[in-house]
């Protein structure tokens, strides 16, 4: 570790987060299930193949266009399970609440969790509540853990990408990050940017129905598409080539990024998945995705190559090429 204290960047999902995990947590917790570093662990309990995951949610502000921290907390954990092809079943919910939070707001968050859980077909079966002094938390933090079962014949992991595979995304990138940012920076829109926050297990199921031969699924949350593809490239020891002109980005998101000096490839998503699929089944999977409400704008955005293992290369709109690195630190609004 190079830093003496924890910086915000340690939680940004980028390079420092990875350093923290690899250099501080892994050597101490060290076990096979964890060391794979997928979004969820696969464990066996009395012979049953289970997927197990946990995630904490600290979004500020807790209510934003298209969602709230409760919806996020359910979707995040459901999606982490779904990215292993697992069928999510049960969630836990832990609340850390700052004193003074209006009960109405808590109720709204909890109702939103129920609604999202219903949509995803999961039950919230246990929970915990702690209240901390004013100033010790920002209104409300939520942790959810989840378990699910992995169907026979499904083997999906960040380490399974093969040269020749296609990279598919299920729609416009950056909506969630920009919706939250807009709330924080007081942006307004002629046509609102709404968080893409959604449970993706239904979409994954639809994909698996047309082909179980899906190599990698991963949701590009913090650190965005760029960071997630870098993870896949490095875990699978392959290169990825992205086509800039194929990546779906809304005009308003691009504009907000230009204003803040951000790159949409690094902006967070909460209802997106990246699928790495063998070329021969890519069209079939893409067609199935387009039929699902959360995949209407799906597109093939790149492919896996044997060249430059561990690196993601973008072929730019004007025909140049550049490396797309992992996010370093957090993105900060900049003027130059």
């Amino acid at each position: 570790m190079t830093e003496k204290n924890i910086l915000l960047a340690h939680g940004s999902g980028g390079r420092l987060s990875h350093q923290l995990v690899r250099e501080l947590f892994l050597p101490v917790f060290d076990n096979d299930a964890l060391n794979k570093l997928d979004d969820r662990a696969e464990v066996f309990a009395s012979g049953v193949r289970l997927a197990f995951t946990t995630d904490s949610f600290v979004v500020s502000p807790p209510f934003f266009e298209g969602g709230d921290i409760g919806k996020l907390a359910v979707c995040g954990t459901v999606n982490d399970l779904a990215m292993g092809g697992a069928e999510p079943l049960y969630l836990s919910a832990g609340f850390i609440i700052e004193e003074g939070l209006p009960i109405d707001q808590l109720k709204a968050v909890v109702e939103s969790m129920r609604k999202t859980a219903d949509e995803a077909g999961v039950k919230i079966v246990c929970g915990d509540t702690k209240v901390v002094e004013r100033g010790s938390a920002d209104r409300i933090f939520i942790n959810t853990s989840g378990i699910g079962v992995v169907p026979e014949g499904v083997s999906i992991s960040g380490s399974l990408a093969q040269p020749g595979d296609k990279v598919i995304i299920n729609g416009f990138i950056g909506d969630h990050g920009i919706a939250v940012m807009a709330e924080r920076h007081g942006f307004s829109f002629t046509e609102k940017v709404v968080s893409d926050c959604a449970p993706l297990n239904g979409l994954v199921k639809a994909m698996l129905e047309v082909s179980t031969d899906i190599h990698v699924l991963r949701d590009p949350t913090r650190g965005g598409v760029a960071t997630t593809l870098n993870e896949i490239a490095s875990q699978s020891n392959v290169g990825v080539v992205l086509r800039e002109d194929m990546i779906p980005v809304r005009d308003q998101v691009l504009a907000a990024c230009e204003i803040l000096g951000y790159d949409p490839l690094y902006v967070a998503n909460e209802g997106k998945l990246l699928a790495v699929v063998p070329a021969q089944s890519a069209d079939r999977v893409l067609a199935a995705m387009k039929k699902h409400p959360y995949g209407v704008d799906s597109a093939i955005i790149g492919e896996v190559v044997a060249d430059h293992p561990g690196k993601v290369v973008l072929s730019t709109g004007i025909g140049g090429r550049r490396i797309v690195d992992m996010l370093v630190g957090e993105q900060l609004p900049r003027i130059c």
Binding site: I6, L7, L8, L332, P333, C336
Partner: peptide
């Protein structure tokens, strides 16, 4: 300040490090 200046190291510290403290 502008976001640009947060991580620039000075002689002994940076604004990001001071913020963490």
């Amino acid at each position: 300040t502008f976001g640009d200046m947060m991580k620039v190291p000075g002689s002994k510290s940076s604004l990001a490090a001071e913020k963490a403290l």
